[in-house]
Design a protein around this nucleic acid. Structure first.
Length: 412
DNA sequence: AGTCCACAGGAAGGGCAGGCGA
DNA sequence: TCGCCTGCCCTTCCTGTGGACT
């Protein structure tokens, strides 16, 4: 029988593909350990946060003597190391407690996590589930969920630290009554010391709270200032050493990355994302090393990805409103709510849909603004009323890509 | 100074889907 | 199966607002 080799079956294009894969295999990878650039990575050394680590550790240390530590409120902008430092300190504390037979549980919840902890019910259910109490995703009265959560707490006993990350998002959504209940719980639970660590990006958040909640939650406060250029450079060099093979990244590229992130209120998370994507782009382009140009490309890609993804997951009517806005903004520099309402209603008529009311569309425009897909600011035109002036917040390329995506998604 | 416009945005509640327990 | 509960999305109704116009 005729011997059949791979080439026997392959067309010229496939042959090229085979070459491509072979080239890829032969080439030394740019990355040594890409995980070192991911958000989930827990570095051994945390740079420029010694003060915060020490403060947090000192405040929490009393649990080791079975005393209830003060509640703590931590705030700082995105990517300033709040979550990283908190998990670093609490996990070390847990390990230490375990070694010395001290009962300690740390319960972590990200209050922005959709479908997990973004409502009062879900947060309680999530925390109770962490304590081994099965609570259905819906169906129970809230007081029953509270009761089961308290029971689970008292059953576990000892010391419990509740870490509520992005707590401002939840309070904005459901109000501060939940925090009031939590702080009351800290004072009233028997046989268990409960402390709360609230983490927020919003510096003004604490001022919006009820006075009792405010004083109880912020018994101690820790502020995380933004990283400056030099600090970001230290962080990035450290991670780049772990993530890239030797000689595969230019120092200039790291500096550029740090400079861009420093402009973005010292966001280390964004800096690490930039570095990772730049590496991926260099690898895909078959380039030997990561250079400054790759950082530029990564920045563009990061923005585009963030925006297109945000647009893709919008509900249908939000997509229609965004489509109306982007279409009108093709012709004009800025538009008003009334113009958008009209063009949105036309679109609905075209698609045979019943349009939402102006009240709802107004909210959708505000939501799109919060997501950074558009710029919308309330202005007064005097005799001609008060309205929102809407303009583009994205580059022309991103604008075109999102418009195309919406056209496909909406079947227009 | 008072009027008026075109909304913004708060409050209340309706309707729906989905889960639970009796 | 039914009543009760939740979250979610939406409408209706309403008051508030800043500045051009009179």
């Amino acid at each position: 029988m005729e011997e059949r080799t791979l080439s026997h079956y392959t067309t010229p294009t496939q042959k090229t593909l085979e070459n491509l894969f072979e080239d890829f295999m032969k080439k030394e990878s740019i990355f040594k350990n890409k995980d070192a650039l991911s958000i989930k990575y827990r570095p051994e050394k945390i740079y420029h946060r010694d003060e915060q680590i020490n403060t947090l550790s000192r405040i929490l240390a009393p649990v080791l003597r079975n005393e209830k530590p003060s509640n703590i409120f931590i705030y700082g902008l995105t990517g300033t190391g709040k979550t990283l430092v908190t998990t670093y300190v609490t996990s070390n504390l847990e390990a230490f407690a375990e070694k010395h037979n001290i009962k300690l549980r740390v319960l972590f919840a990200n209050c922005k996590m959709k479908k997990v902890a973004d409502t009062e019910y879900r947060l309680l259910a999530h925390l109770a589930n962490l304590l081994g109490e099965e609570i259905p995703t819906t169906g129970l009265p809230t007081d029953e969920v509270y009761r089961r959560f308290y029971n689970a707490l008292e059953r576990v006993g000892g010391n419990v630290i509740l870490v509520l990350d992005e707590i401002d998002a939840l309070v904005k959504k459901v109000g501060d009554e939940l925090l009031y209940n939590f702080t009351r719980m800290c004072e009233t639970t028997n046989d268990v010391n409960v402390s709360i660590i609230g983490i927020s990006n919003d510096l003004s958040f604490i001022d919006c709270l009820d006075a009792r909640v405010k004083s109880s939650l912020s018994e101690e406060e820790i502020i995380f200032p933004p990283y400056n250029y030099e600090q970001l450079k230290d962080i990035l060099f450290d991670r780049a050493m772990l993530a890239f093979n030797e000689g595969k990244i230019d120092e200039a590229a790291i500096n550029k990355c740090a400079a861009l992130a420093a402009q973005e209120h010292g966001d280390a998370r964004r800096a690490l994302d930039l570095l990772r994507i730049a590496g991926e782009i260099a690898e895909r382009n078959n380039d030997d090393r990561v250079e400054e140009k790759h950082i530029d490309m990564a920045e563009e890609k990061l923005d585009l990805d963030r925006m297109t993804e945000a647009a893709r997951v919008l509900p249908k009517h939000s997509k229609l409103v965004l489509f109306a806005i982007l279409t009108v903004l093709k012709r004009k520099k800025c538009v008003l709510t009334g113009d958008i309402q009209k063009s949105y209603e036309l679109l609905c008529a075209q698609m045979g849909l019943r349009p939402l009311t102006q009240r709802r569309v107004s909210d959708i425009i505000a939501e799109l603004d919060i997501q950074g897909l558009i710029n919308a600011s309330v202005i007064s035109k005097g005799r001609y009323g008060r309205t929102r002036e809407i303009s583009l917040s994205i580059s022309k390329t991103t604008h075109d890509k999102i418009l195309l995506l919406l056209k496909q998604e909406l079947d227009l």
